[in-house]
Amino acid sequence: MTTIYGLKNCDTCRKATRWLDRFGVAYTFVDYRDNKPSPETLVEWAGRLGGFPAMVNKSSTTWRQLPDNRKGAASDAEWKLLLREHPQLIKRPLVVTDDGETSQGFTDNGFKKRFGIGA
């Protein structure tokens, strides 16, 4: 089973879930504003995605509105606190499959490759 983490109001998340529906890929959607990821989950994702800075959408309004001292998180503890406080900073959708593979973002071709559709 695939788990999609994102925001229910996010256009990209909606595109991703419509794509999964169209191609019959079973998934569970988790809105991480309502179900904030645990610190352990954030560390796990960061390890799979290349670190905390790689997980953050730095072009988002939320990021731009943060004070500069919050943007310069220097430790994993600071990143975990920031992402638990502002989960909407996490690039979305974040996709986790049963085999543990973790990725972020949505493109038609990227999902086709990821899920072996039309390859």
Rank of each mutant, 00 (worst) to 15 (best):
D31L: 02
P87A: 01
Y27T: 13
V25W: 00
N9G: 12
D108G: 10
D98T: 14
R92I: 01
K112E: 15
R84M: 14
T17E: 07
C13F: 01
A77D: 12
Q104D: 06
G105M: 15
L49E: 03
N35Y: 05
A77N: 10
V56Y: 05
L94Q: 06
G72W: 00
T102C: 05
T41I: 10
N9H: 13
F23E: 15
N109L: 08
Q104Y: 06
T61P: 00
Y5D: 02
G100Y: 10
R64K: 12
H86I: 11
R70M: 14
A46D: 14
V30T: 01
Y5H: 06
V95I: 15
W19D: 13
G24K: 09
T12Y: 00
Y27G: 00
E101W: 00
Q88H: 02
Q65W: 00
D68H: 09
R114I: 04
T97I: 08
N57P: 08
I117P: 03
G72S: 15
R18E: 15
A54G: 13
E40V: 10
E44N: 12
P93G: 04
N109S: 14
W79A: 08
N57E: 14
R22F: 15
Y32A: 03
M55S: 08
F106P: 05
Q104E: 10
Q65G: 09
L42R: 00
L49K: 12
C10N: 11
T61A: 09
S60N: 11
I117G: 04
L83A: 04
D98P: 11
Q104F: 02
G118C: 10
